[in-house]
Design a protein around this nucleic acid. Structure first.
Lengths: 201, 201, 201, 201
DNA sequence: CATGAATGAGTATTCATTCAT
DNA sequence: CATGAATGAATACTCATTCAT
């Protein structure tokens, strides 16, 4: 690919990211993507097989960025607690910075096995990254624990995505809360008398 | 509404539940719903304003059932730990029994504000049910804790929905795991030396 | 089918016959057919599966008419010579009357196996009708003779289709010529000395 | 044109002959022609104005070959009967050898007046070649007779094109049949009592 | 209440052709 | 002469919804 080609390829991905992200798959027209990318309709098809292929490419680029950035951040810190905190911060702030592009995940094409497979792969890789951290901490059942932590974070991010008044400060608070709850559990987070909660298995 | 009307109303909802559930919103045709319900196409519109309205009604009936059953189960048990376990079991087994109807949630109409609002309302009510349980346990930040618990459960249910070989036994194991992790946190669930984990805030 | 339906079905076939006939398959738009038939675009698809199906139906109606009319005319006459003359007249005048619709045959869809199969069937039936006449006359190799006669007529009709100044009188002349040539051969039609031509096998 | 140019010109025609012949006009892509000819897409347009022009050139080359070969064969033989037999053999075997390229004739572009005009010219020249033979035999109405003979042969060739199991021997049989029928007519070819057929005009 | 025939808006994709290099 | 990246016109078909009966 020549540098002009790469530039065009990127321009299409950028345009598609904006439009798919804010309007969803079904409401985005290929002609709009071309127009926003500053090229002709047919040219889009020189770079991407079809609309679903383009959506896949946008999704893939976004997910890969998510995982790579996470990897970099994790390498820069030491203790388990610190790492769990970094994961929470990454998850919450990644979406905080992408508030405007929620449709990329919630309005995806309905029947694309390739996309479904890729999302499963992404989840697996994300989970394994968390699993690795937990294993270093000596966790048993690290996969279930990773799933749980990610699920927790994913739900906590929802308000960030849909509440326009959500502040960065509030996001920080949630990050600390999530890591704390995950590490110490409800018992450690409650001001209830411990007698209300079972102490062990 | 006459009893004949009620019967037809229910027949349409049942037909739509099956079809939306297994094929998703976009792939289900109103004519198919009518056919499966044993009535004429036009008749569907005497009972539901349009396709999205019908989807809403199906979703609402399903979600209300979810919440009502949860309420009943919660009233039948006492301690906080027991209640959390009931919530986990309800969440996981509700979907376990509905494996065949996943599309109802994952292939919803893309741009219906009413549906989005209803799902938000459902989440709010679900969360409040969990909040109520946590408040009885004396939790601080009960909303964030409820969100976290639900998020945890929601992620843990994914394999149940998509892994055809998932057993009921395995679902039980996850239920226990979720409640345990939530209550005692990673520290309590790990066989690592506690020194690796911060003991408190 | 109600009488209104039959009327609409016929209206579509008539409109399609005109447009396919004068513009060919590829140049005729379904929207034009609908417009000319005085109905909505979608309605065409209630009566015909798709564009090719409609083309098939038009072709079939035309070919069936050709064969039925031929049958009727043949029943009304006696001797072999008379019947051959009737066949020639039918072939030439059928197209004489359809001068304006030549595209129905020359601009058909290129890749429709069903259409190809139907045209083969039509040719077979037409040939068998001629074969039957020839067998009554005691012909050996009746199929080859039928093919030859039809081929002869088909070529002689070409000028009729494409020469706008072609007269009905001229068509009559060709009819007589064809029957005469077929029956008596070039020897009988030539004023050459018979010695130039072989008298027999 | 340099020899390199001539070579490229020929390579394009050869590639186009193969592709148009086996796939038809509409199904053949200019990019495929270029690829098969071993040159770039744009280069085709240095040698041929457009796709239809290329199709014309392919058709013209094929038709000219047909007429030239016929001319050569006719010069090598003497009597009228012999010449008619040569014409029949040429017509039938020319297509026998081109079984694989039927689409060149049956899937031509639908709306090209130039092609229509050329095919008319080809037919005229072919007919004149036959007319010349017939005139030497002293025929009256030589044009109608030529048209008839050609039509006869054209129909008899159809099975050759479409019946894969057609043998060369069978083609020879048809050649003899056609010449015989044309010369002596049905009367001479039938084993019926001549009384069934009119003896003269 | 019930029917089902009729409507018509809406869009991805291909491929012949061009022209800057 | 040769290239191949870029262009953009052109069109069938579906299906939710309506409304006359």
């Amino acid at each position: 690919m020549s540098s002009a080609s790469i530039h065009k390829h990127t321009a299409i991905l950028d345009a598609a990211y904006e439009l798919f992200g804010s309007g969803g798959f079904y409401e985005t027209k290929m002609s709009e993507v071309a127009e926003r990318a500053g090229i002709a309709k047919g040219t889009v098809y020189l770079y991407f097989k079809n609309k679903e292929d383009l959506f896949m490419a946008v999704t893939r680029r976004d997910c890969e960025g998510f995982l790579q950035q996470l990897e970099v951040k994790l390498q820069a810190c030491g203790s388990l607690a610190e790492k769990l905190s970094v994961i929470a911060a990454h998850h919450l702030f990644y979406y905080y910075e992408r508030k405007q592009h929620t449709k990329l995940f919630f309005r995806a094409p309905n029947n694309n096995p390739e996309l479904v497979a890729y999302m499963a792969l992404f989840m697996e890789e994300y989970m394994q990254a968390v699993v690795k951290v937990l294993l270093e901490g000596g966790a048993s059942e690290p996969e279930l624990m990773a799933q749980s932590y990610i699920g927790m974070l994913d739900r906590l991010k929802m308000d960030i995505l849909f509440d326009p008044s959500f502040t960065e400060e509030e996001a920080h608070k949630r990050k600390k809360f999530a890591a704390g709850l995950f590490i110490r559990g409800a018992v450690g987070s409650m001001n209830a008398s411990p007698g209300d909660l079972p102490a062990g298995p």
